[in-house]
């Protein structure tokens, strides 16, 4: 299906993926052999002993201790192998190396947000250096989500009010698909992301660029950048089309009707409140589904977004 990867599995891009795949294929081929034996037995015996002629008495074979012991003991031994192998592989995934770089992962409807030790933040894209173990400290701000990167064989639920921990190390540079795999509502299937694995040098550059995010840009340009990178774009259009939320086109300074029946003028304070605490005022015809950005955006970033929305004339 993908360009790389095998018929059964996607490419193996984390340090522990090969171990998972080894067990996967061990179970696969053992199963194929057992399955082939069952199907062969079924076909052979049913044709060989197909009823011919009149009804007669048949053999009174009720059991065969040796045979039964064989087909009990062999599968038992095989599954013990699978159990131990699976557990050992699992422990590799669970025990985080001491020198791992820690990244905070926050899931909320319907995007992923990543906080780095350098004090920077990215949305929808996890950027990591190659060849370094990365520890993910995961939590959710609303319902349960689950972080899944098939190429890494990595999956961990994001649970509200609790931290879960996962780790990985990717040695190959590249971009890897990230999914949410715990059902979380309307846009569950859109809650995608990327993991970008960079070389050490590129990673440092990325960190530097992002620590100075907005520098050298006008407030409006910075606002547009944030609009594209912080998860606004999937729900709010710029051309007047209605998506999950109202379009930003030409709303500034205009009056909007709320679900409560009141009307309100779209001004700086209204926009600020709608970003940080979106449930407070819901525009009529829309669902109260937007996540609060309190604690995700810095004050300067909120300013930039307001400036950007202001600039979108009709």
């Amino acid at each position: 299906m993908e360009n790389s990867g095998t018929f059964w599995l996607p490419r193996a891009a984390s340090t522990y993926a090969a171990d998972v795949d080894g067990l996967f294929y061990f179970i696969l081929w053992t199963s194929v052999v057992i399955f082939a034996l069952v199907v062969f037995g079924l076909i052979y015996l049913s044709i060989r002993y197909k009823k011919r002629g009149k009804t007669e008495l048949t053999a009174g074979i009720s059991h065969n201790t040796k045979l039964e012991l064989t087909w009990t003991i062999i599968p038992t031994l095989l599954i013990l192998v699978v159990f131990v192998w699976g557990f050992r592989g699992y422990m590799k995934m669970r025990v985080v190396p001491k020198d791992a770089i820690e990244i905070r992962v926050t899931a909320q409807k319907w995007f992923w947000s990543f906080d780095y030790q350098e004090g920077i933040n990215s949305v929808g894209e996890l950027v990591v250096p190659a060849g370094k173990p990365i520890k993910l400290l995961i939590s959710s701000r609303d319902v349960i989500h689950s972080l899944f990167v098939p190429d890494f064989r990595l999956k961990m639920d994001a649970v509200p009010n609790r931290y879960t921990i996962a780790w990985f190390q990717a040695d190959e540079l590249g971009e890897y698909q990230l999914y949410c795999t715990e059902y979380c509502g309307t846009e569950h299937s859109k809650m995608l992301g990327k993991v970008r694995v960079l070389s050490q040098g590129d990673y440092e550059n990325w960190v530097n660029e992002n620590s100075q995010l907005g520098q050298g840009l006008t407030l409006e340009e910075f606002g547009r950048q944030l609009y594209e990178n912080k998860g606004c774009m999937p729900c709010h259009s710029l051309d007047g089309t209605t998506k999950i939320g109202p379009s930003f086109k030409g709303i500034f300074g205009h009056e909007v009707q709320l679900t409560s029946g009141e009307t309100v003028i779209v001004d700086e304070n209204y926009i600020r409140e709608s970003i940080l605490n979106p449930q407070a005022k819901i525009v009529a015809g829309f669902q109260p589904v937007m996540p609060p950005y309190q604690g995700i955006l810095k004050p300067q970033e909120v300013d930039a977004l307001i400036a950007f929305i202001k600039s979108l004339k009709e």
Partner: peptide, 10 residues
């Protein structure tokens, strides 16, 4: 496959 811990994670 699903009972084996490491494979189930995937």
């Amino acid at each position: 496959f699903l009972g084996a811990l490491s494979v189930d994670v995937h």
